[in-house]
Amino acid sequence: MLKQRYRFYQALLLLALCLFLTAKAAIGQLTWYINFRYIPLTIIGVVFLAILAQTLYSETKYLRQNAQHDHDHDHTPASANLWFMLVPLLIGVLIPSRPLDSSAFSTKGFNNNSPLVSADSSAELLGTDSQNRNILDWIKLFNFESDLSPFLEQKASVIGFVYFDKSLAKNQFFVSRFIISCCAADSYAIAMVGEWPQASTLKQDSWVLVKGPVQSIKLNNQAVPLIQAESVQAVPVPDQPYLFP
């Protein structure tokens, strides 16, 4: 491949990558892949990609102007390198993206006894308004506090996606969220139990807001928070579908 053309394709691919990531950032889907804390880094990366693409493009112009003595350049770079950069673009564009859901439970793990974070952060949670706690907060409290009685009958209001499991009764379902530290590669799911007479009308993996007083239920010898749902509302996928410990 001619050097000049190679540089042009490089510029094009980096620009495409840059635009792809910009689009993901603009529609707020970067949080489907990485922890929101690392998004500024990605943005810096995107800006740098744009600078690289611009430099490469201006180099093609430079090469065109000086093309005479450049005809038989013998070390043409491996063009295979170029095609690989298409892979993330194709995967990103062709496979409609969606955040991880219950179909990933079988491989990523569905596990309430993970030590979510150090115990001291559960102490902070004791004082918070029960309706402001998310699923992760509730699981932390139930994992770290030996005495659960202060939390029982507190009102909970949590958002998660629905997951039906054989271990639960007909009127029960899991309200679940994925936890990620760095990116979706290290995710695993946690869940509370919802109890609601019309549970069977819910759809697997649909996002819901569940409100009601909290009880405790034993699953696999472990205390898990159960919400006696007074209301279950369908909600859109949250801006940040995953929770961060």
């Binding site: 990531l21 993901k24 970067l30 489907w32 892949y33 990485i34 690392y38 880094l41 990605t42 810096i44 990366g45 740098f48 993330p88 995967i91 990103g92 496979i95 409609p96 993206s97 969606r98 955040p99 991880l100 179909s103 990933a104 491989t107 990523k108 760095c182 990116c183 979706a184 590669a185």
Partner: peptide
Amino acid sequence: RLNIFATVFLSIFVEALP
């Protein structure tokens, strides 16, 4: 499976890129 693959792949790629 394809969806999980795409999500995990892109997450590693996006995270490592910068």
